[in-house]
């Protein structure tokens, strides 16, 4: 459904996205994971047309929707197909919950006030909020409630693709689980394709059909949650296990050349020169063990 081809972006001298290729299938939930500063938010902003690439393109149903030097107004047509939940929900502070939800409906449709009220009620119900919330102001809501209202606002226009930017990053574990359930239930009820940008690997395991991992502006993994668990890439294992330093075993030097350059990592991080090497001599073993103890 959505295809990202050779996407490149730089800000000044800093290359943020470096040849990103990714395909998102209809009806699937794809989680884009990565460390802070890895480029996942920049990728997210490309998909929703808030920034445009320096190279490559984005296709939606085989139609190019984003390319270099594109005028923002050209993206307008595609924008109607996206629903977005921002980190922190980005509710309009000066409007009540009901007005937040009604605003896009009032401006883009010819629905009557009664019809708009009905849609608002349904959307709030879908995210597990009662209709009485309509009169509350965003400042009166908790983080979880704000996320739900943001979600309700995103679905009022019935989007085909739903994007979530760090939906659970500021929430407690119980609320995180509720939001994850909500993402799954919305997919069931509305059949939307979903893209979730997150660094919460627990949420990704729970909701994702597919996980794409981005590191230093490149996609270093693209597969199912089961496949990412089995990955032998040290960096991926470090990320999914939440380890502070890289010290996961590798079987063979250069076996991840396509996705992970071990030599470069060693040059950049001399302290990490303690990967378990094949045919390691006996004399090196104590040093490795000492290193491990140090890690712990």
């Amino acid at each position: 459904m959505l295809k990202i081809e050779h996407l490149k972006k730089h800000f000044g001298n800093q290359v943020v996205l470096d040849d990103i290729n990714l395909e998102i299938k209809k009806g699937q939930i794809t989680c884009i994971i990565g460390q802070s500063g890895s480029g996942k938010t920049v990728l997210f902003r490309h998909i929703i047309g808030l920034i445009f690439p320096d190279g490559g393109r984005i296709l939606l149903d085989k139609e190019v929707i984003s390319y270099p030097n594109m005028k923002p107004s050209e993206f307008k047509k595609s924008r109607k197909r996206f629903g977005i939940l921002f980190q922190g929900a980005a509710l309009f502070d000066s409007m009540s919950v009901g007005e937040n939800l009604a605003f896009p409906l009032r401006e883009h449709t010819n629905l009557t006030t009664e019809e708009i009220d009905k849609i608002i009620g349904e959307s709030l119900e879908m995210v597990g909020l009662r209709e009485e919330f309509k009169t509350k102001m965003p400042s009166e809501l908790s983080g979880g409630m704000r996320s739900r209202v943001g979600l309700a606002r995103a679905i009022v226009m019935k989007p085909e693709i739903m994007l979530y930017d760090e939906p659970t990053s500021a929430l407690d574990p119980i609320m995180t689980d509720k939001i994850n359930d909500l993402i799954l239930s919305l997919r069931e009820k509305l059949g939307m394709t979903s893209i979730v940008v997150t660094h919460d690997i627990g949420s990704a395991y729970k909701i994702a059909d597919k996980i794409a991992m981005i590191h230093e502006g490149k996609i270093i993994f693209d597969g199912t949650p089961a496949e990412i668990r089995k990955s032998r890439n040290p960096y991926i294992q470090q990320f999914i296990r939440g380890q502070r330093k890289l010290h996961y075993a590798v079987e063979e030097e250069g076996s991840y050349a396509g996705t992970f350059n071990l030599n470069r990592l060693r040059q950049e991080n001399p302290a990490e020169r303690k990967f378990r090497m094949p045919q390691r001599s006996e004399s090196e073993k104590p040093e490795m063990e000492a290193g491990r103890n140090d890690e712990e």
């Binding site: 921002f86 509710l91 502070d93 605003f103």
Partner: peptide
């Protein structure tokens, strides 16, 4: 300014407002 920093302006743009 605070609408910009809290992504409300981005939200307006993606809602085509």
């Amino acid at each position: 300014g605070s609408m910009k920093t809290s992504e409300q302006l981005d939200a307006m743009q993606v809602l085509i407002l």
